[in-house]
Amino acid sequence: MRNDRRGFLTLLGGAAALTLLPAGRAAALDSDQAHALIDTALGEVYQVINAGQPPEQMYEQFEDIFVRYADVDVIARSALGPAARQTDASVLAAYTQAFQGYIGRKYGKRFREFIGSRIEVTGARPLKSFFAVTSVAYLNGRAPMEVEWHVSNRSGQDRFFNIIIEGVNMLASERAEVTALLARNQGDVTALAAELQQAG
């Protein structure tokens, strides 16, 4: 685990050094780096899946991976929709914190079905202002599934901000979920955060 992290850091360091060369643009992301980011993140996910720890511990570790490889701020903000703009920073931060725990639990439960499976990263291409990394998930007794990752460096770091599984878009799905929860709480983001802490 430590080795992998070191490897990832070295990779990032090397990537940063490389990107300094052309035109001096800081942290320009390219297809290879986007590809490598998802490869490394998946490696960590599978380490957790295959370690076979109790669910609660697994969910915490998924949350940790999510925080390190995903742009949690922008995902949480996007899920909240226009309401994010009217929410003050401290409330938004508390909501974001609750949101990342909810994601760790919700997707952590799904990942348990991935025991004995593998995901192969197949390619990466520029898309709009970001990169799309394509992969194929091979699950037991199921046709292979296309999984696409959207990676951006707009946060200042290379992070993924969306996962699209057979066309089903995580950001869209979470936006629908959070919007519905917000409506149920009469637009109160603090109450929404409290509910998210129990959800997932």
Partner: peptide, 28 residues
């Protein structure tokens, strides 16, 4: 595709970033 980064820049309540169905959270 959703481009949340693009949505952030536009800063409006409307469906920006929804032009081709990409979600770009950075543009919200």
């Amino acid at each position: 595709e959703i481009d949340p980064y693009a949505d952030a820049d536009a800063d409006a309540g409307s469906d920006v970033g929804a032009d081709e169905g990409v979600i770009d959270p950075y543009e919200e």
